[in-house]
Design a protein around this nucleic acid. Sequence first.
DNA 1: CTGAAAGCGCTAACAA
DNA 2: TTGTTAGCGCTTTCAG
Lengths: 338, 338
Amino acid sequence: MTTATIRDVAKEAGVGVGTVSRVINGNPAVSEATRQKVLDAIETLDFTPNMVARRLSLGKTQTIGVIVPYFTNPSVVERLRGVVSVIAASDYDMVLFDVETVGRREAYLHDVPGRRQVDGLLIVSLELTNQEVERLERSKLPTVLVDARHPDLNQVVVDNVEGGYIATKHLIELGHRRIAYISDFLNDPFNSPVRDRFTGYTMALEEAEIPFRTEYHRQARHGREEGRKMTHDLLDLPEPPTAIFAYSDTQAIGVLEAARERAMNVPADLSVIGFDDIEVAEYLNITTIRQFLYESGVRGSKLLLESMTRQFSKPKCISLPIKLIKRRTTAAPSSVAV
Amino acid sequence: MTTATIRDVAKEAGVGVGTVSRVINGNPAVSEATRQKVLDAIETLDFTPNMVARRLSLGKTQTIGVIVPYFTNPSVVERLRGVVSVIAASDYDMVLFDVETVGRREAYLHDVPGRRQVDGLLIVSLELTNQEVERLERSKLPTVLVDARHPDLNQVVVDNVEGGYIATKHLIELGHRRIAYISDFLNDPFNSPVRDRFTGYTMALEEAEIPFRTEYHRQARHGREEGRKMTHDLLDLPEPPTAIFAYSDTQAIGVLEAARERAMNVPADLSVIGFDDIEVAEYLNITTIRQFLYESGVRGSKLLLESMTRQFSKPKCISLPIKLIKRRTTAAPSSVAV
DNA sequence: CTGAAAGCGCTAACAA
DNA sequence: TTGTTAGCGCTTTCAG
């Protein structure tokens, strides 16, 4: 038994396919009698409309695409949760494109708009080149960026410079002078937050007239383990920092591990501040800069849904706040260290 | 400028649409000369084939659907990571259906097979009724269950009875006699793991000739907060337990919180064991029963991909191991408590 | 090798 | 109200 089509239903009910289509789509221009006949036929044939056919006919897919890098990253997952919560409640399906390599990134960014398989596109934590944006614009595919900026696109963002500034300033106000910043690679063309937070870091330093020391900035691939290693390097310095600002909570966890391995007391011997406020940060009592990750996903997808119904005259930019969350990994430096 | 179709390309290249199609699909029966003409035309028109049309024509979607409950649940996310890792590396797209309510559950399970929008279906942590399975079979849609059982379907599972048994036995061997089990509701028809682990719990008790006490089993909705509350209730008992086996790590975290609120020392005053071994469990040093969540996603999707190419004579059942991970939340009861 | 034409299952415009 | 028909863009015989 092959699946029933609209034609089978029409035959079974003794009506035309158009009528069946109308019934399916709730078109009121159908008499109650025939509607019932059709409904019965649908029932006996256990018919469900073929979405692919409908999509082709309609020219719409009722699907939104979400491109995310590193689905393994907790902050990305948290944003995605927000996205899922609104998409699942809408009439749209969601297809997920996970970018782990440059190749896939290019493939998705190139193909997804052209293939016409989604009605809207949400791009999370991925910096786009002008060329890519141009292509997107040509395809007329409604798009919104979450955690990435571009003058021509709708976006929801956060002020990472300010975030870096606030984090560093918190440490300074606590009395620290030897403050390190550990982060992802600064020269990654697709990662501007890492640079922005660095800028905030240096701004705060400068404001407090603390000279920036190259050896206090470490960079590596993203990850807890890398955070751990960088911390050890830092602590091996002749004049080790008394506080570390980690680009992400994940890296901050690595810092904590390193400290534990050296039997150092946090925050007495070493202060640590992270960024993001992922869920674990709370359990581990990590002082951090909260950015509303879940909320960013929610706002981003809502903005997308909205932009799919009406065109905005110019790109919308939603700026989400950030907030210092003081917990138990930061304190004044022990006097001996100063 | 509307998107170019295969017909435009054909005209531009001065060939028939069939030829263009052949070129696109790498059909070797095309002369090098015409192939080049077509390629040029594709280039100048910036043509990308419309996936929806291709799908309709092919009768395949190159898409696999994944139905998960509570995307907010860390263990589900972890499984999903495994799924994403293999799907993203395949030629399939992945559409995600998040089930938060009974209504959506029914809707997805009913519609997804019929709509023919996916070539395969992965169902995670969702128990199916016979009726639902029957429908699935009728639709001939390749399906695999992850973390759920059914005699007629492919599946990857874990022995939860054994898990519950091992967890409890660990506590018993440490010397505990007053052991509580906190969990999700036992009578949830769609959650058999909760019952299985309970069975394992009672088995271990029985084997050690420890009578089961009703007041030592608490149930509530899933969540950290609920775990916290149940723990307080337990500790308010005239004869409180010395050890708690939590259905999930999430709930175990709640136990830890409650203990901290009472300034109780874990594991000296109270032992805690969780289940799953989600990432946080490691950071928080929670003793737990590891089930290979990520791996379950990987195996499940591989099995699905495989079952989409060749039919199995009978349903495959992959059973993943479990493992006691001893960390720092379990120890012998303090003598005073005995 | 290549072009023409017949679908894939559905929607919507057009008649009736 | 309803049936008929022309697409939606692509693949795939079937001739040539």
